[in-house]
């Protein structure tokens, strides 16, 4: 897993901030009509309700007249928070919110009213589901799962853990031969000569 801090080019971050939130426009916004499939003009009319990506909303919320109000996305509303605290393991994050933890982190740090609760919920949910991801990754008999109830972060954890387990099992049963030089290196010299001759 990446051992660097979140940064500008972080793909995971970028993808996660594309998760959507319900927004209600309180004022007209010129030029953004294309965001609304039901728009008649080039502008968004007041009282329009749209589901927009977080990164767009973040910019709109910075405007001095704050033309939108936002609600928490479905996966993070009070109902779901209760579901998670009851039994997080049954939730299908693949369907509900693919970037649950990364996006949740963004929301938790966004200084919203519900941010502290979201933070607590994220930690508790992860801890609850850890056992599930752990057990699944140790069980290498079954086929690698193509899709499951995991969100992206859990899935990455699962994949890496499973790969490591497979390698360990292979090593235990068969042993690994000598560490070989990559064939690319062995062939490097040969390739160079060919280029020279041409």
């Amino acid at each position: 897993m990446k051992l660097c801090r979140s940064h500008y080019f972080d793909l995971e971050d970028i993808l996660a901030s594309h998760e959507t939130m319900p927004a209600t426009f309180t004022e007209e916004v010129k030029g953004l009509g294309f965001l609304d499939p039901g728009a008649v003009t080039d502008n968004i009319t007041p009282k329009t309700k749209l589901e927009l990506p977080f990164w767009i909303l973040q910019v709109l919320l910075q405007l001095p007249n704050k033309p939108v109000t936002v609600e928490l996305p479905k996966a993070f509303n009070a109902t779901h928070r209760d579901i998670f605290s009851a039994d997080a393991c049954i939730v299908d994050f693949n369907k509900l919110c693919k970037f649950f933890y990364t996006f949740g982190k963004i929301l938790a740090r966004a200084k919203l009213k519900e941010s502290p609760e979201i933070k607590k919920m994220l930690v508790e949910t992860f801890k609850q589901r850890f056992r599930y991801v752990f057990d699944l990754s140790q069980n290498v008999e079954t086929e690698k799962l193509a899709s499951d109830k995991m969100d992206r972060m859990e899935r990455e954890l699962y994949n890496e853990s499973r790969t490591a387990q497979v390698r360990l099992n292979q090593w235990m049963s068969v042993g690994i031969g000598t560490i070989q030089a990559a064939s690319m290196i062995v062939n490097h010299r040969k390739r160079k000569l060919t280029v020279f001759e041409l």
């Binding site: 897993m1 500008y8 973040q58 982190k105 963004i106 740090r109 992860f126 801890k127 954890l157």
Partner: peptide, 26 residues
Amino acid sequence: SLNIISSLEKDQDSDGEDNSQSQNRA
């Protein structure tokens, strides 16, 4: 997993940077 939990628990990046990167991009 410990890294993830630790990161979820933090309110901001440890050296006090409040701006999330998406803020930076925005």
